[in-house]
């Protein structure tokens, strides 16, 4: 983890709200950045953030609304969490925001602690997502070092099959399977078959189907 504080993106067409929220976020030791519209934010950050961040968005804005911004982020596979703030939250908007995975929905005027709590929750979630994302990519990296045969053996091993059974399935001698299995565990940095199964599940690597 780097030492730079997590970023909070504040998107609101009201300049005064932006300034007050930036102060609040800075006081909480976070990096606050403000944008007057959803378009301005998307232009500044076309790619999903790679470091822990949280978005605080006004529901109603000229141009793209808060909900539309959330939609765009989902489409671009951004995992950045969204906290909605609104002066006039109607139930349909709230429901849609939550269904699209919003952290929470605060009605203006709100208590600073409520917002900071929501931001904290969002950052925690993002951190976890990012961490999960990092683990997956490291597993994928490790999988790339496996040969065709080793991948084939791994798909059998994670079914829980014995070396003998795998050898029969692959028409090789049991000893060969034993060597492959040791190499797979080593390359995948797994201590046990159980851990291998978990790693494979994380990246969605499918087990072989017994014929």
């Amino acid at each position: 983890m780097s030492l730079t504080p997590p970023t909070v993106f504040i998107v609101d067409d009201d300049a005064s709200i932006c300034r007050s929220l930036a102060r609040l976020v800075r006081q909480a030791g976070l990096d606050g950045r403000t944008y007057p519209s959803a378009e301005a934010f998307l232009e500044a950050h076309p790619a999903p953030p790679s470091r822990p961040a949280c978005l605080v968005v006004d529901l109603q804005m000229p141009g793209l609304s808060g909900l539309e911004l959330q939609q765009r982020l989902l489409e671009s596979h951004s995992s950045c969490p969204v906290v909605f703030i609104s002066g006039n939250g109607d139930i349909p908007s709230t429901v849609r925001a939550m269904r699209q995975g919003a952290v929470t929905f605060l009605t203006k005027p709100f208590d600073n602690d409520d917002l900071l709590r929501a931001i904290g929750e969002g950052l925690e979630k993002h951190r976890a997502t990012l961490a999960a994302g990092q683990q997956v990519s490291s597993i994928r990296e490790r999988m790339k070092t496996l040969t065709e045969r080793e991948l084939e053996v791994m798909s059998w091993v994670i079914t829980g099959a014995l070396n003998k059974q795998v050898a029969a399935e692959l028409n090789v001698v049991e000893k060969t399977v034993k060597v492959h299995r040791a190499r797979v565990l080593e390359k995948m940095q797994a201590q046990s078959v159980a851990e291998l199964v978990r790693l494979c599940a994380l990246v969605g690597f499918a087990a072989a189907e017994p014929s």
């Binding site: 009201d14 005064s16 709200i17 300034r19 007050s20 929220l21 102060r23 609040l24 006081q27 109603q60 703030i85 609104s86 002066g87 006039n88 009605t107 203006k108 005027p109 709100f110 208590d111 600073n112 917002l115």
Partner: peptide, 17 residues
């Protein structure tokens, strides 16, 4: 009400900070 909530929200937040 929304129009009125904007300055109120900013005031609340600013004064708490």
């Amino acid at each position: 009400a929304h129009e009125l909530n904007q300055p109120l929200a900013a005031i609340l937040s600013n004064s708490q900070v």
